[in-house]
């Protein structure tokens, strides 16, 4: 799964630690999500979307091509 988390975070000038605090997860988890090594659960994806005032689809995209 691809995501725009790093770009969205950079646009707001947030550090990984600040985003991790806002989402109540570890900084390592944010790093793994940004690198596409870990896919967040649906509740965490919703929480992320709420934080950025966006929809889940605007942040996370399925990288399987149809």
């Amino acid at each position: 799964m691809k995501n725009r988390l790093k770009v969205l975070r950079a646009e707001r000038d947030w550090t990984q630690a600040q985003l991790a605090s806002a989402l109540d997860v570890s900084r390592q988890t944010i790093n793994a999500i940004e690198k596409g090594k870990f896919d967040p659960s649906l509740p965490l994806a919703f929480k992320t979307a709420r934080l950025f005032n966006m929809t889940i689809e605007e942040i996370f995209q399925d990288d399987v091509s149809d």
Partner: peptide
């Protein structure tokens, strides 16, 4: 997000 206040995790 305030790092100092919300570093709850």
């Amino acid at each position: 997000p305030e790092q100092s206040i919300t570093n709850e995790y």
